[in-house]
Simulated scan of single mutants.
Amino acid sequence: MMALIFCLYLITMVLAIKGKRNLAFYGFGVSLVVSLFWFSHHATDTLSILL
Rank of each mutant, 00 (worst) to 15 (best):
S48Q: 13
H42I: 05
L15K: 04
S40H: 04
V34W: 11
S35Y: 07
Y26D: 08
L50F: 10
L36P: 02
L23N: 07
S48D: 12
C7L: 13
V30E: 01
F37Q: 05
M2K: 06
F25W: 08
T12P: 01
I5T: 11
V33I: 15
S35V: 04
A16P: 00
V34Q: 11
S48N: 13
V30W: 01
I49V: 14
D45N: 07
S35M: 12
S31R: 01
L23A: 11
W38D: 15
N22P: 02
N22A: 10
L15V: 07
H41V: 10
V33Y: 09
I5C: 10
S31E: 02
V33K: 04
I11K: 06
V33M: 14
V14Y: 02
L36N: 08
H42T: 07
M1G: 11
F39S: 08
S31F: 08
F28A: 12
V33C: 14
A3K: 09
V14Q: 00
Y26K: 11
T12R: 03
S35E: 05
S35H: 15
L32I: 09
T46F: 15
I5S: 05
A3H: 03
L50D: 10
K20V: 09
N22E: 08
L47W: 05
L47V: 12
A43V: 09
G19L: 08
F37W: 14
F37N: 08
Y9F: 15
S48L: 13
L36R: 08
I5F: 06
I49Q: 13
F39T: 09
M1S: 10
H42G: 09
H42Q: 04
L32H: 01
F37V: 14
L8M: 09
L8Q: 03
A16M: 09
L47M: 06
D45H: 07
Y9T: 02
F39H: 07
L8G: 00
S31H: 03
V34T: 15
M1L: 06
S40Q: 06
T44A: 10
L8V: 09
V30T: 15
L50V: 06
A43E: 10
L36C: 13
G27D: 00
I17T: 12
W38R: 14
I49Y: 14
L32S: 09
I17K: 14
L10C: 03
